[in-house]
Structures are given as C-alpha cells and as structure tokens.
C-alpha cells in the first residue's frame, strides 16, 4: 500500500448527492459521498439497507437516472465525467469499460434467452464482431470464470444453472469486454456460504490476474475482510469512515463502525455472553436527524453532534484514514471496545 500514491486513480467521486421524489416526500438516498479508487484496487463499500451504498453504485452506472431522481456531484472515470454524461456517452462506457453484477443472479439474467446469447448481445453492443466470434468469446469467458463444460453451458437457459453458476455467468458477461472496473452489488448475499467462498476467490483471482479494479458493495464484514484493500463505511446516505482494510478493522474511528464490528459473530473465538448490539434503528431518509445521522443511536453523542462533522483525516499517522466523528482520537481509543486487533 506504500505505493498507493503513485498508482493512477481510476474512479474519483466528489460530493455525490442523489435524491428521489416519492409520494411521501424527498428521499435523500446519497448525501455528499466522495470516493477514490486506484487501479487494481478492491474498494469495499459497507453499509446496511438504506445506507445509500447501492444507490451510489447504480448512479455510477447511470442506472438511477429518471424523472423522479435528482443527481448532483462529479464522478470521473477514465477521462469520462459520468454524472454529466449524455445517455449515449454513458451507454458506451457501461458494460464496456465498467461493468456491474447484482445480488440475485436468477432475476438478473433474462429467463427467456440462453446464457451465451446474453453474453454475445453485450459483446456486439460494443464491438463490431461476427456472432460466431462473439460466441467463441462467450465460451472462453465461461471457461475463465470456472464454469465446467462451457461449450455446453453456453446454450443453457439461466434456470438450468445453479445459483453459483448463474453468478459466474453474470461475472463472465461483465468481463466480456475486459473492463477496468467491476461494480459488484452484494454479489454473494443470495448464495450459500461455500459458493460465496468460491466466488470471492474468483473475484480475488480476477483482481490479481486481470488487473480488474472492483467496487464491492456489501453488508457482510466477513466478506470485506477476505478481499478488500480499502473500505468505506456508509450510514444513512453518508460515508462515515474510510481507510485501508487494516485501519478500519484495527483502528476504527467512528462509533457506527465500532457497533458494526462489535456485532459480528466469530466462529474461531469463544462466544460472548451477549451479542453487542447497536440500539435503535437506522433513520428515515425522508426526515434524517439534524447533524450526524448516527447521533440518535450513538452512546457517545454530545452537543457538537448537532452539526454535521466533515469527512476528515483526524489521525496524523494515517493520512488516508477519514472519518465523520467529532470525538478526539484519544476519546475514541478510550471508548471503543472493539478493533484492537487482539
């Protein structure tokens, strides 16, 4: 990670705000998110439902655009400004330089087309190649993601594959134009743990061998620890902490991160009497609390928390470790009960 400064930046997001007009009012799904992704890096965006992690990812892909959405901010990706891009410019980038896979591989593939045809369709949307060439490429891709008998499976319908195989097929499709960025939105949540382990291994291999950068959206801290280089923790539309994997796991700065790490169960450790829990529940994004969004659930809140803390570096020894909490580093180390790496 010491070389991080010299590696070029692939994706740079600043002040991203996304809100949706609904019947109940305006939902502020993403509230000033900034992210930076270096080439070859795996960035995990962690959060619970409603934290804005998926909306952030979908917005990069232009998939939240619509009459009820208002989007502002900037997102630079390989020389393209994604937020302001025309639909046609964005279409040329997505599926090509930047791909996305989703949580439920069954519903994410069209049930009426064969898997190979769906890959061929993507290749031919971006490259002027013959159907035969594209099909050959589809077989190679299925082979590369570890699908046995790719020459036969290329003609299978999605429902004829198991859940794990479907997600592999989704990954093959995402890789079909050799993108530099893969956005994976909860890619293993719908799958069994042994299949999950295989898919994480596959993603790690692709990251190492193909120089594929990955933004991994997940709620599962265990998965993050297996694969991420850097971590951004989101809560109620904002990033509350961002740093390297070790910084966030062993020196967490935000009380929400403490709660998240604390409520984990570990099968390799003696079990505690009680699972540490975060009291209360996430706020409504229709009327988020004033100031720090975590304040109503935070046992350490004080009067300053009525205003919004900036996402700043607060530790002199870790210039790339950001957090949104007013407590001093000393207070934090005193009060947190987790993350000392013991």
């Amino acid at each position: 990670m010491s070389e991080a400064g010299r590696v070029p930046t692939l994706l740079e997001v600043h002040d991203l705000e996304v809100s949706f007009n609904t019947e109940d009012g305006v939902v502020r799904a993403v509230d000033g998110v900034g992210l930076e992704l270096k080439s070859d890096e795996v960035l995990a965006v962690v959060g619970e439902s409603g934290s804005g992690k998926s909306v952030t990812a979908l917005t990069m892909m232009g998939l939240t655009r619509g009459p009820n959405a208002s989007i502002s901010g900037t997102a630079h990706f390989e020389g393209t400004e994604l937020i302001g891009a025309s639909d046609e410019e964005l279409r040329r980038v997505r599926g090509n330089r930047m791909s996305m896979i989703f949580q439920d591989p069954m519903s994410s593939l069209n049930p009426v087309y064969r898997v190979g045809a769906q890959i061929v369709e993507q290749i031919r949307a971006h490259r002027d190649v013959s159907a035969t060439e594209a099909r050959q490429r589809a077989v190679e891709l299925l082979d590369a993601v570890g699908i046995p008998d790719p020459g036969i499976r290329v003609d299978a319908y999605p429902h004829e594959l198991s859940g794990g195989m479907r997600q592999r097929a989704m990954i093959a499709m995402a890789l079909s134009l050799d993108p530099s960025l893969l956005i994976a939105d909860e890619p293993t949540t719908a799958l069994d743990v042994t299949i999950q382990a295989q898919l994480i291994e596959l993603l790690r291999k692709l990251n190492e061998e193909r120089d594929l950068s990955i933004v991994l959206i997940t709620h599962d801290i265990g998965v993050v620890a297996e694969i991420a280089d850097r971590v951004a923790v989101m809560y109620a539309g904002r990033i509350v902490e961002q740093g390297t994997l070790d910084e966030v796991f062993y020196d967490p700065q935000h009380p929400y991160t403490w709660g998240l790490l604390g409520s984990l169960t570990r099968i390799d450790r003696p079990r505690p009497d009680r699972l540490p829990q975060i009291p209360g529940m996430p706020p409504s994004l229709l009327e988020p609390p004033v100031g720090c969004h975590f304040r109503p659930r935070c046992p350490h809140a004080f009067d300053r928390c009525q205003s919004v803390p900036d996402l700043n570096t607060r530790l002199p020894e870790a210039p790339a470790h950001f957090d949104r909490c007013f407590l001093s580093p000393e207070q934090k180390r005193e009060r947190r009960e987790v993350g000392d790496g013991t």
Binding site: L63, R91, R94, S99, F102, S108, L109, Q122, A125, H126
Partner: peptide, 22 residues
C-alpha cells in the same frame, strides 16, 4: 422494473434494444 432489464441497461445496450429484446 425487473432485474434483468436493469442488467440489460448495465450491459450498455441501446434503449431501443432494451425495450424490444428485453
């Protein structure tokens, strides 16, 4: 609103193709 239509857009298909084929 189906997931596979979102996938079709994410693949970079033209809006016309998304509407007709998916």
């Amino acid at each position: 609103g189906e997931d596979y239509v979102r996938t079709a857009r994410a693949k970079g298909l033209s809006e016309r193709r998304v509407m007709l084929k998916h």
